[in-house]
Structure formats: C-alpha cells, structure tokens
Amino acid sequence: MTDSYIYIIIPLLPLAALMLVFQVNPYHALVIRAILGAVAALVYGVLGAADVALTEALVGTMLAITLYLVAVRSSLVMRLGILQEVEAEGEIDLEELIVNLRKILNQHNLRLEIAEYPNSQALEQALMTKKIHATCTKGEPERDRSYHTAIRVRRLFEIMETELTSPVTTLSYVTVSNLEDKH
C-alpha cells in the first residue's frame, strides 16, 4: 500500500467536496454530488475497500441523485393561484406579469406553477389552507393598476417587493393564521 499515486488520488476527494460546497445552484450541485460519488468510489477502490466502493457508486451516484432531483424539483416552487375567468380572457397584462414573475423566480432557482380556481372563494380558501403561496386577482377598477397579488410567504414577498418592477400589479403580504387580515 505504499504506491505513490495514492497520494495524488486522495486529494481529489476534498477537492470535489469543496466544489460541491461552493456551488449555489441546486441542480448543478446535484451533478457535482454525482462527481463526488465517482471520485469517492475511486478512492475507496484504491484503498482496497471494494465493497464500500460498490456501495458508494450504487447509492451515492444513482439512488441519492435521482431521489434528490425529484425532491429539489418539487420543493423549489412558487404556486400562484388565479381565477379561471381571468385566465380565459387571455389578457396581455397577466401574461406579461407571469413572464416577469418567472424571470425573477428563475434567478432564485425557483419555478412558477399556475393553479386555476373557479371562483374567488375557492382561491381565498386555497391561500388560507396553504395549498398555494400567492394569489393574483383583478383589483378595483378605479385604481390604475389592474391586478393585485397577495403573497403569504414572507421571503417570497420580500423578493417580489425589491425585484418586481411590473406596473401591472400591487403587492401585499398576507398572514395566514389571522383570518381577519384578508385583502
């Protein structure tokens, strides 16, 4: 076990681990985790632990990555509830707003998912029961901004407040536990 190449192979493991730690995008981090698994399997194989290397390759490179990809995909999402009639009218303002939202969320590695509801009661109910993170409804006609977006997640509201420059909508933060605080 005094082969000189061992001393070059072993430092690859902390190198790959550092690459993983400093990666900010979750999808890229998953691919680098797979690379870390491959390098770890190499190190274990070189050190003579064939069974550990096999386990690392099977679990670390295949199973964990696949499961985590599904988990990351389904958790990094913002669900926006809209009314079916608003969607049916196909207004350009709403489409522009959704494009704007998508662009901002993409910068934070999030996805936008649109959920349609038949009436405003069902929409409100979905927001209060935490099925959706935000609602987008038509505002009062006398105001110049035609849409109103209510967000119940504090962090999402802060992001939207600083970055959403769209003149189409007004923003508000809703506390869900308090039913009196409706907008």
């Binding site: 998953l30 797979a34 490179t61 295949m62 696949t66």
Partner: peptide
C-alpha cells in the same frame, strides 16, 4: 467492482 461501477455509472448518467 470496477466493471460494475463502469456499467452502473453509465446507467445512472442516462437516468439523470
């Protein structure tokens, strides 16, 4: 083990 890792690595890559 190396041969198994070689084939499984390819399968995992295609799946990912």
């Amino acid at each position: 083990v190396a041969v198994i890792i070689l084939s499984v690595g390819n399968a995992g890559l295609m799946l990912l």
